[in-house]
């Protein structure tokens, strides 16, 4: 593109120019010229316009037109391409920007992260499986109650269970019953009156939360439980991974918990991973605060 500047100064007073932005003066300019395209596919467009100082500027734009090998257009479609604009499109302002290319890259978002399945299989084959073999009693799914088959985080019946949204803010026993009873009555039920199942869940949860729990914050939204598991597994056997998920949106809330079987492993993980850059964020890893109740 070549710009040949300032062919002649404008005769119009600057005050007027300022007011109507020079747009009404366009009729003073020579019309737009299109030369070509020539045999090399080069098209020249000569335009005139006023620049900011009110000077007339000639703009010569050279465009090389290439035919795309793959583009198959019907004769009619090519013809339609040169149709004059009509209706409101005739008087379209340059600044109206009706058509814009999104600044955001939009991807076809897969429901599962690609490769989730094989990764899970791998994870199951590693140290976790060995623990499972060693003592099946250790591997109890809190969602469906099955022993030695899978961990809670991989429970196939997860969707059927009451969702556990957060477990640090509120005691889990009250929360699960609140969601369960809320659907039917919506009234407060004292702990003594609640169903036996809920009580069992409550004690279970207290047991699992008190030992060797590591709190991970500043997680990126894309981090899922398998990712965390992969990150923490090298430090020792992990008994539980949990990423807090917003119940409404299904998005990660940016924090999670990892429970280790051995306290030393957890300590090493904290020392190593606190301040570790993970998925463009800096992780914060610390001991989970003991619950208040």
């Amino acid at each position: 593109m070549a710009v040949e500047a300032a062919t002649q100064p404008s005769k119009v007073r600057w005050g007027e120019l300022e007011e109507d932005d020079g747009e009404d003066l366009d009729f003073l300019l020579p019309p737009k010229q299109v030369i070509g395209p020539n045999e090399n596919g080069i098209k020249k467009v000569v335009e005139y316009k006023f620049n900011d100082e009110g000077n007339k500027v000639k703009i010569t734009t050279s465009i090389r037109i290439r035919k795309l090998a793959n583009a198959r257009l019907s004769k009619h479609a090519v013809e339609r391409r040169s149709w004059p604009k009509f209706g409101d499109a005739v008087h379209e302002d340059v600044g109206s920007r009706l058509t814009m290319v999104s600044t955001e890259e939009i991807l076809l978002e897969r429901p599962r992260a690609a490769g989730t399945k094989p990764e899970e299989a791998k994870a199951a084959g590693d140290p976790l499986a060995q623990i499972g073999k060693g003592g099946a009693a250790l591997m109890v799914c809190r969602t469906c109650g099955k022993k030695g088959e899978h961990w809670t985080s991989r429970c196939p019946y997860k969707d059927l269970a009451q969702p556990i949204e957060s477990f640090i803010d509120r005691p889990p026993s009250s929360e699960t019953t609140a969601t369960a009873t809320g659907a039917t009555k919506g009234a407060y039920v004292p702990p003594s009156m609640r169903g036996g199942g809920a009580e069992r869940v409550g004690t279970d949860m207290r047991r699992r939360n008190e030992e060797n729990s590591v709190r991970v914050t500043n997680l990126s939204e894309d981090t899922r439980e398998p990712d965390l598991h992969e990150l923490f597994r090298p430090f020792g056997s992990v008994s539980r991974v949990y990423v807090a998920v917003d119940q409404k949106t299904g998005m990660s809330r940016g924090f999670g918990f990892v429970n280790f079987v051995n306290r030393e492993d957890a300590e090493r993980a904290i020392n190593k991973l606190n301040g570790y850059g993970y998925d463009n964020l800096i992780l914060r890893v610390e001991w989970a605060a003991p619950r208040s109740n």
């Binding site: 257009l73 019907s74 009706l98 814009m100 290319v101 600044t103 955001e104 991807l107």
Partner: peptide
């Protein structure tokens, strides 16, 4: 992909149709 955003309508869209050659929407 980077979608192309077309803001020609002032009210909710109701219908979209391509012609047979796929060059007009």
């Amino acid at each position: 992909m980077r979608p192309i955003l077309m803001k020609g309508h002032e009210r909710p869209l109701t219908f979209l149709k391509y012609n047979r050659d796929g060059d007009l929407l």
